[in-house]
Amino acid sequence: MSRLSPQRIASAVRWRIAQRRYRSGGFRLETLAGRAGDGDLALIMCLWNRRERIDTVLAQLDAQRIDGRRVRLLLWNNNPADDAYYRERIGRFTPAGALSEVALFTSRTNVGGLGRFFIARSLRESGYRGPFLMLDDDQDVSDHFVADLLAASGTHTIAGYWAWTMSGDYWARVPAEPGDRVSYVGTGGCVCDIDIVADDAFFTELPRYFAFLEDIWMCGYARRRGWTLRKVDTPVEFVLDETNQHHSLAERKAEFYRYLRLGELD
């Protein structure tokens, strides 16, 4: 058996420490613009290598048309080199519409998309209940994006734009129709019941090898617990596709789907 290199061992140790720390709430989001209010809806986004998108993200989310609620934008940055840039751009932004607050946390360890669920866990531990939204920084949305997702939300429900029905394998799939019960919903452009992170098992049962495939994990974890996954009809446009990490994870996605033995819908 080949021995792990010192670099891989150090990386594994950093990962375990970060997981333990973040799962227990050992981080703090810093408010950089606005101020949260009671009953505000949480929208969580992970940041990695698209810092030039932040101004557009802020503008599109502040322009949301929703009745009776405002939105807290909670950002998890996995790239410390961009921390100063985000702080400068967000600091120049004054919420004037749907956004009540913009807050940021920068992680020294790249934990991928799991960062959004660490935020969700912290929110739930602080008493937040009901739906929270997730969006990727390579997605342009309409001014009714939040309203569309809220209309599809529910107890033990995940609903989103990027939704597919699988036929026994991750890549053997067909796009769903709005309202369809589906096998898979992507984390980008979705609404999810905060109870997805109610149990430590969401984090502790995820194999480290597949840790950057949190979208597949979310769906598999939810389906095994009898949750409902649905397709939402809302306009979303993907940009900067060349920066998307999914190009390097294609085979691992299929491997993880087989590992979870999700197969077709019951």
Rank of each mutant, 00 (worst) to 15 (best):
residue 109 T to R: 15
residue 141 V to E: 14
residue 3 R to K: 14
residue 161 Y to G: 03
residue 108 R to Q: 14
residue 142 S to Q: 09
residue 135 L to A: 08
residue 194 I to S: 13
residue 226 G to K: 06
residue 49 N to Q: 13
residue 256 F to V: 10
residue 204 T to D: 13
residue 164 W to C: 01
residue 181 R to P: 07
residue 73 L to I: 01
residue 181 R to Y: 01
residue 244 N to H: 15
residue 90 I to S: 11
residue 257 Y to W: 15
residue 70 R to H: 09
residue 77 N to C: 05
residue 5 S to Q: 11
residue 119 I to P: 03
residue 75 L to C: 02
residue 250 A to T: 13
residue 19 Q to K: 13
residue 34 G to V: 00
residue 42 A to H: 13
residue 204 T to N: 11
residue 67 D to Q: 00
residue 236 V to L: 11
residue 224 R to F: 03
residue 124 R to Y: 13
residue 61 L to R: 07
residue 6 P to T: 06
residue 58 L to K: 04
residue 234 T to K: 09
residue 207 P to H: 04
residue 214 E to Q: 14
residue 39 G to P: 07
residue 136 D to T: 03
residue 233 D to E: 15
residue 76 W to L: 01
residue 55 D to A: 15
residue 239 V to A: 10
residue 226 G to D: 01
residue 218 M to G: 04
residue 7 Q to N: 04
residue 149 L to S: 00
residue 95 P to E: 06
residue 204 T to C: 04
residue 74 L to N: 06
residue 185 V to K: 03
residue 195 D to S: 03
residue 22 Y to R: 03
residue 50 R to G: 00
residue 84 A to K: 12
residue 55 D to V: 09
residue 27 F to P: 14
residue 176 A to F: 10
residue 38 D to R: 14
residue 210 F to S: 08
residue 256 F to I: 08
residue 195 D to Q: 11
residue 191 V to C: 00
residue 32 L to P: 15
residue 260 L to D: 13
residue 14 R to K: 13
residue 43 L to E: 05
residue 150 L to V: 13
residue 259 Y to G: 12
residue 83 D to K: 02
residue 18 A to C: 07
residue 53 R to D: 02
residue 28 R to S: 13
residue 213 L to N: 08
residue 153 S to T: 00
residue 248 S to H: 06
residue 105 F to R: 12
residue 265 L to T: 12
residue 120 A to L: 13
residue 51 R to Y: 04
residue 5 S to K: 14
residue 209 Y to N: 06
residue 78 N to L: 01
residue 142 S to L: 08
residue 64 Q to R: 09
residue 85 Y to L: 12
residue 151 A to P: 05
residue 110 N to V: 09
residue 62 D to Y: 06
residue 191 V to T: 08
residue 189 G to W: 03
residue 171 W to V: 11
residue 96 A to E: 14
residue 17 I to H: 14
residue 37 G to C: 13
residue 37 G to Q: 15
residue 176 A to I: 09
residue 242 E to R: 15
residue 117 F to H: 06
residue 202 F to P: 03
residue 148 D to E: 11
residue 222 A to V: 02
residue 137 D to L: 10
residue 124 R to G: 02
residue 176 A to L: 09
residue 219 C to L: 07
residue 85 Y to K: 07
residue 254 A to D: 04
residue 133 L to P: 05
residue 158 I to T: 03
residue 218 M to F: 06
residue 98 A to Y: 00
residue 170 Y to M: 15
residue 60 Q to T: 03
residue 25 G to T: 05
residue 104 L to S: 01
residue 86 Y to D: 02
residue 219 C to S: 11
residue 118 F to T: 05
residue 171 W to E: 12
residue 211 A to V: 05
residue 192 C to V: 15
residue 203 F to G: 00
residue 59 A to W: 08
residue 23 R to F: 05
residue 15 W to K: 08
residue 84 A to R: 10
residue 255 E to K: 09
residue 70 R to D: 01
residue 155 T to G: 06
residue 100 S to K: 05
residue 35 R to V: 00
residue 3 R to M: 10
residue 239 V to P: 10
residue 158 I to P: 08
residue 27 F to I: 00
residue 251 E to M: 09
residue 229 L to A: 10
residue 258 R to L: 05
residue 28 R to M: 10
residue 113 G to H: 00
residue 143 D to P: 05
residue 46 C to R: 14
residue 213 L to R: 04
residue 56 T to L: 12
residue 179 G to V: 01
residue 182 V to H: 06
residue 135 L to R: 02
